[in-house]
Amino acid sequence: MFEARLVQSAILKKVLEAIKDLLTEATFDCSDSGIQLQAMDNAHVSLVSLNLRSDGFDKYRCDRNLSMGMNLGNMTKIMKCAGAEDTVTMKAQDNADVVAFMFESKNQEKVSDYEMKLMNLDQEHLGIPETDYSCIVKMPSQEFARICRDLSQFGESMAISCTKEGVKFSSAGDIGSANIKLAQTANVDAEEEAVVIEMQEPVSLTFACRYLNSFTKATPLSAQVQLSMSADVPLVVEYKIGELGHIRYYLAPKIED
């Protein structure tokens, strides 16, 4: 028996928004420790890794490990039926071929039950090694989304260069070029508005804008985003999901042949 309850269904809606641009279907692996998802986009350029800890749920029970393959378009249709203030409960029996979603309004005046058929998906788990990154940038997630959107007008790729002075985002194309420099913030009142750089070595990497823009669909989940970079390895873009967990996107860089 699997059962996971979140008082704020809005969190699950946002998680779904954050992955459905990149993935059409995915397997949710449920265990005693929580729910995990790891999947690549169709082109195998990026990887989404979602971790929702069991202790972050308002109620969580998972007697046996369970892998639930879901079509994310269909899951989105169902989650759209939940009111923003509703509580959501996901339930499945052991070895079930369906997952149930129950939405309850405040005071249980309205209770809605939906069942969705599960799918058997071939899943390939990649082994992501522990990495000491050369540069870690923490910045407001809305600022990062804005920069990705603005720079994608200039070219298909953008370079992210990090030194201890700051982080520079640049792009160039037919219409011209763009450069945005962010300095580390000296002192800010709100922690979430800070730009913080931890640098061991300067790094400059080039990435496809399209994927970065897809990652920024996670912006509503967190006020801050963390970018981890080392030379010639995938970028990690991480959004914390409150006390519940995190979503990480890995993006392969463009490298000189």
């Binding site: 082994g127 090694p129 392969a252």
Partner: peptide, 14 residues
Amino acid sequence: KKRQFNIHHFYLGQ
């Protein structure tokens, strides 16, 4: 000219 690498190139499957 830079080439787009894929995720497999960096992380082997388990």
